[in-house]
Amino acid sequence: MKRICLFPGTFDPITLGHTDIIDRSLDLFDEIVVGVGVNSAKTPMFPLEQRMQWIREIYSNQPKVKVISYEGLTVKTCQEISARFILRGIRSIGDFEYEKSIADVNRMMDAEIETIFLSCSPHYSTLASSLVRDVLRYGGDASKLLPDTIIRQIKP
């Protein structure tokens, strides 16, 4: 049976912390589906198609990585794409507590889907998309926070 994993998030934008988690999980799964979530409660900085395109470009040479958009329950998306795993990156104990609660509810909805927590590399332990958006919004240098693909496209 193919080990398919869903890595859900808004990826607004995808950061070096996100790519660290994806890169380090490549050996764990046969396919990693990066699920760009549509959350009606959030107003993203970058359009959905742009976020998806950046991920496709970053992983254009990695056939194991696929990109989809989804709305609604992550567990339902896993069922639709036959993913038995949900991948979540953990930066801190606060992240773990929050993510464990979600994982517990997901397990109640579908006991066949396992959540895998991968702690981020220490270099990225404070990196969050919201902080990156602030750096970008106020004209700061985000070159140490974002993949080169994105930096090249957003520079004026």
Rank of each mutant, 00 (worst) to 15 (best):
P47K: 13
P63F: 07
Y70S: 01
V36R: 03
R91L: 06
K100P: 03
I150H: 10
Y98A: 12
Y70E: 03
S40L: 12
I14T: 02
L87S: 02
I68W: 03
L131E: 09
I102K: 03
L136F: 09
T149F: 11
D23A: 11
G139N: 09
F29R: 02
V33C: 07
A103L: 06
V33G: 03
I58C: 07
R24Q: 10
G37Y: 00
P156D: 14
T115D: 10
R84D: 14
I93G: 14
E99D: 00
G37I: 04
D27P: 11
G139Y: 07
K144Q: 15
K100H: 06
I86Q: 02
G17D: 02
Q79V: 05
V34C: 11
E80T: 12
I81G: 05
R107L: 15
R24T: 07
H18T: 03
V65P: 06
P44E: 04
E49P: 08
D27F: 08
I81C: 04
Y98G: 05
K64Y: 09
T43P: 09
I55Q: 01
F7I: 06
M108Q: 10
S130Q: 08
Y138S: 04
V38K: 13
K155G: 15
G140H: 05
Q62M: 12
R133V: 06
S130M: 08
V67W: 05
P44I: 04
D104N: 11
K76R: 13
K2G: 13
I116Y: 01
I116F: 13
G17T: 00
P8I: 02
P147F: 07
V33Q: 03
E97C: 00
D110S: 09
I151P: 10
C120L: 14
K100W: 10
L87M: 11
K100R: 12
C78Y: 01
A111D: 12
T15I: 04
I93D: 09
I113A: 04
G139W: 07
G17H: 01
T115C: 12
P122I: 08
L146N: 01
S129L: 01
L145E: 06
D134I: 10
L146F: 10
M109N: 07
K42E: 09
V33K: 06
Y124K: 09
E114F: 04
V65R: 04
M1E: 10
E99N: 06
S60P: 10
D23W: 02
C5F: 02
P156H: 13
I86N: 08
D20M: 01
E49Y: 14
V135L: 12
A83S: 10
T74R: 03
D134N: 14
E57M: 13
N61S: 15
N106V: 01
Q153D: 13
R56F: 09
E97G: 11
E99W: 08
V34Y: 02
I113L: 05
S60I: 00
Q50N: 04
D12Q: 00
L48I: 12
V34F: 07
T115I: 05
S69D: 07
V105N: 05
F7Y: 12
F46Y: 06
R3K: 15
F117N: 11
S82R: 02
V34R: 08
F11W: 01
T10C: 03
E71F: 12
I154P: 08
V33Y: 09
E49C: 13
S40P: 05
L131M: 15
I21Q: 01
M108E: 14
R91H: 00
S69H: 12
E112A: 13
E97K: 14
I86S: 01
V36G: 11
L26A: 08
E80S: 14
P122V: 09
E99C: 07
